[in-house]
């Protein structure tokens, strides 16, 4: 088994002890079974147990371990550690208040997600069996429903940094379109009303950082474009 030393520069901040944040230089030895950045981070935490980060599924579906890796947002569990330039610089995802080290307060992000009413609205009497949906109509949800709410996209978006309280952000808007696109949902008109505002939708300037960083390969900019098209269509 070949061992290898990995150099890190990690953003550290514990409001209990530190007057202000600092960058810590630290290295850790990994072996051939450690492929991902998260594997190395778990080893790093054995060496210094005070380094704090979130993690759970370690396979890119739970969305816990989003962080800023060498300047770009991503999931530690899906990033090959050996492909990264060293020292690997790790910072919390930007634009949200830091609780400690790489752990941020996600309240603002989830408030925006909740603001789009993230559930199917259908007030018709429920049939005995499933509501029918053609495979083609179901396909409209592909590329939308797979979002894992990791916040890589919204926290790489300058419009969200400036107006996190007013702009829904790419994750929330992707979710908004997921429900608009669902043939079972009956609230398209209310959903568009909810976004008809100078900030909520229209602060998206198609910078496309969201597309660039999404660890699931989703395209919020395209979904936002489709919502904008619907806005235009109903205006004429």
């Amino acid at each position: 088994m070949t061992n290898e030393t990995i150099q890190f520069r990690v953003y550290r901040y514990n409001p209990d002890q530190d007057a202000k944040p600092y960058m810590q230089d630290i290295s850790v030895e990994i072996d051939s079974t450690d492929r991902k950045l998260l594997d190395a981070l778990v080893k790093l935490k054995v060496k210094d147990e005070t380094i704090s980060f979130r993690r759970s599924c370690r396979e890119g579906v739970c969305g816990s371990d989003a962080m800023n890796i060498n300047g770009k947002n991503g999931l530690a569990c899906l990033t090959d550690v050996r492909d990264l330039k060293q020292p690997i610089e790790l910072r919390p995802i930007p634009g949200l208040p830091v609780i400690r080290d790489l752990i941020v307060d996600m309240t603002q992000f989830f408030t925006q997600y909740h603001s789009i009413k993230p559930y199917v609205v259908n007030n018709s009497p429920a049939p005995e069996r499933e509501r029918l949906q053609s495979p083609e109509d179901r396909k409209e949800l592909d590329g939308l429903y797979e979002c894992i709410l990791c916040a890589c996209c919204s926290t790489s978006c300058p419009s969200f940094w400036w107006n996190p309280d007013k702009f829904v952000g790419p994750a929330g808007l992707l979710a908004a379109y997921r429900f608009i696109a669902d043939t079972r949902d009956e609230a398209t008109s209310e959903r568009l009303d909810n976004l008809e505002d100078p900030y909520r939708l229209f602060r998206c300037h198609s910078i496309m950082n969201c597309v660039d960083v999404c660890p699931k390969g989703l395209n919020p900019t395209r979904a936002i474009g489709k919502i904008k098209d619907l806005m235009v269509k109903r205006a004429v």
């Binding site: 559930y119 199917v120 259908n122 429920a126 005995e128 069996r129 499933e130 509501r131 029918l132 949906q133 053609s134 495979p135 109509d137 179901r138 949800l141 429903y145 429900f179 669902d182 079972r184 949902d185």
Partner: peptide
């Protein structure tokens, strides 16, 4: 079926089931 009514995006057969 309840879960489908809650909005679960199940894959579909040609007949929509």
């Amino acid at each position: 079926v309840e879960l489908e009514h809650f909005g679960m995006p199940f894959d579909r057969n040609d007949d929509g089931t």
